[in-house]
Simulated scan of single mutants.
Amino acid sequence: MAPFDIIEPRIDSTEATPFSANNGACPRTANKPPLSGASIYDGGYSHARERGVRVRIANGTAGQIGLVRAWADSFIQYMVNKGEAPFQVAWYLGDSTASLALLASGTVDMALTYVPSAELQLMESGAASRRVYAFRDRFALVGPHCNPAALEEQDSVYSMFTKIVNAGNADVECPPDPDVRPATRFLSRCDKSATNIKESQIFLAIGQLPWGHDYSRWYHQFIRFPREALRAAAALSEYTLIDYGAWLSAPPCVRAGMRVYKIGSDAADDVLLNPAHLLYRGATSKAPDNEDGALSTAFYEWIVDPAAGMQVTLGFSKAGQTMYSNPPPSKD
């Protein structure tokens, strides 16, 4: 298989070309679908449309796999039981960078994101008034069963990435017989998501910059959301980094072709910890509270209430496994 072309820094097309597992081709200008509208949840009350959307939240993976919907429906039912008229909650799909931008612009009331440094910058800018540690997720390094980079269980994540780099470079210089094994490649979403930022931090920590000029031919840039990227990595026998929730929610036929080589823990110093924080716009110097402020505030507080939303979060499961754990005692 010929090396993949790099995706140019400037992408003129905003329309994503579907990935075809039949030929393994990945378009040169592949891009995420543009943000257009949102998914609307009503808690099972069909007449909630009469009142319309009253709360807006942005997020990526947790929304894709159903946690945001579980939150929204449970919260609406909770509020109706307290006497509130039925209403709708809107979820806007966006990775952490896009979700923070939606929050800063006032498009959404809150954002669930996974990049603490960027979140703190947004708080400092005055575009958000509150931030809380919502739950702990983890990243996982996954790849093909044939394991062309010869990763071993006792390897650290840094050693694993180093092996992928070395094996990838060697396979570029001397391509393996495809009938024996696939070449070593790493799939990056290359999209400014929390996952992309995390993998970049790991590559930088081992002194590598595979996306820089002259870029590494084993570094496959595929700009899609997690579940689409995982399907591509599975079809092409590539390693990739993914949040564990997205891995567990992937179709069995996708996971069957891959295995987990390293997964994060809940330890604060684990490089593969994926901390989820909820940021609330609310009333700030840059964002006066809107007419739905009371409901938005109630939703924000309900999500992190141990007797309410946290029960939904901790009980959320895929493939028979719970996906998230409690946040640690925290001052933020």
Rank of each mutant, 00 (worst) to 15 (best):
L122Y: 12
A104V: 09
L314C: 05
A276Y: 01
D191G: 08
A127S: 12
Q64N: 13
M1I: 15
W247F: 04
L314Q: 05
A58L: 10
P86Y: 02
S96Y: 09
E124F: 13
A127F: 11
P178A: 00
I242E: 01
K286Q: 10
E15V: 15
S159Q: 15
D73M: 06
D155F: 08
R28V: 15
S285G: 15
M310L: 12
G315K: 07
I7H: 09
T29L: 14
R69L: 07
Q121E: 15
L103G: 05
G43E: 04
I57L: 09
T162I: 12
T240C: 07
N326G: 11
Y45T: 01
D73C: 07
Q121N: 15
Q77P: 00
L230T: 03
E173M: 14
A233S: 03
A268T: 11
D269Y: 06
K82Q: 11
L248K: 04
L35G: 12
G37K: 05
I40A: 03
L272M: 07
I206M: 01
H220T: 14
R49Q: 14
T113E: 05
A232S: 10
L295V: 03
S105R: 11
L204S: 14
A128Q: 04
A268L: 12
A58G: 11
A127D: 11
A72T: 01
F222P: 00
G63T: 06
D269A: 08
A170Y: 02
G212D: 14
A183I: 02
V304I: 15
P33V: 14
V115K: 04
T322G: 08
A232H: 05
Q121Y: 15
R231I: 08
L278R: 03
F316D: 00
T107R: 13
S265T: 10
P327C: 05
L120E: 13
G126H: 09
I202C: 05
T297W: 13
R281A: 04
A128N: 05
R281V: 00
F316L: 07
Y280H: 06
P148F: 04
S156M: 09
L102R: 00
D269F: 01
K318F: 15
Y280G: 01
L93V: 13
M79Q: 11
P148G: 02
